[in-house]
Amino acid sequence: MYLWMKALHLMAMVTWFAALFYLPRLFVYHATARDASDEQAITYFKTMERKLYRGIMTPSMILVLIFGGIMLYLVPGWMSQGWMHVKLALVALLIAYHHVCLIYLKQFAQNRCTKSHTFFRFFNEAPVIVLVAVVLLAVLKPF
């Protein structure tokens, strides 16, 4: 059962990260279209952002947490290991990042977002750092 949970956890994680990378990229394009007053593109981005967040990103996050939780239930000894504490802290940061994306999504939907496309280019890079750290922790299990 553990290997099935691990496989499902990894599939959900890949999907969640794909969305965590793509939504802020849509924000970059949305901010660029906003600055150019391209109403047709703005409408398109609002639709894409909403569908990505609600249809892919959030369900993937929930599945990551469910399958990860089941794995912790099956191997409770991991909770006594330092690498797992760091990994879970990073997952908490990802969940916060996920919700910050929702804040920006709502601001864009209401035409209230004032962040620049440059801001979102940097914002888009944050999950990369977390991904590298989480994978290294899960594979190497240091500490």
Rank of each mutant, 00 (worst) to 15 (best):
S60L: 10
L140W: 03
L3H: 02
I70H: 08
V28F: 10
K6I: 06
A126N: 07
H85S: 11
M5D: 15
Q40A: 14
M71V: 01
R121M: 14
A7V: 12
T47V: 14
D38S: 01
L140M: 04
L72R: 12
A138P: 00
T47F: 13
V134R: 00
Y29T: 13
L131P: 01
S37N: 15
F122H: 13
T114N: 04
A19H: 05
E49P: 06
Y2V: 04
T114C: 03
P76E: 12
I70C: 10
F17G: 01
G82K: 02
M13R: 01
M84H: 02
V91N: 03
F119W: 12
L88N: 10
M48T: 13
A92I: 04
T32V: 07
F45W: 08
A7Y: 12
L105G: 02
D38L: 01
K46I: 03
L23D: 05
V128Q: 04
G82P: 08
Y29D: 15
M57P: 04
A41F: 11
A7G: 08
R34L: 10
Q81C: 07
L63V: 03
R54N: 11
A33D: 15
N124S: 11
T15A: 11
L23S: 08
Y104S: 06
A36L: 09
I129T: 05
E39P: 08
V128C: 10
L94W: 01
L3E: 04
D38W: 01
Y29W: 15
E49H: 07
Y97A: 03
V64E: 05
R112S: 06
M1P: 04
G69R: 11
H99Y: 10
Y29H: 15
H85M: 11
Q110N: 13
K6D: 12
F27C: 13
R54C: 05
S37W: 10
R121P: 07
I66T: 06
K46A: 05
F122C: 09
H117D: 15
V86W: 03
L26G: 11
R112N: 06
M71S: 05
D35M: 12
L90H: 05
A133N: 00
I103Q: 00
L3T: 07
T32H: 09
A89T: 09
R54G: 07
A18S: 13
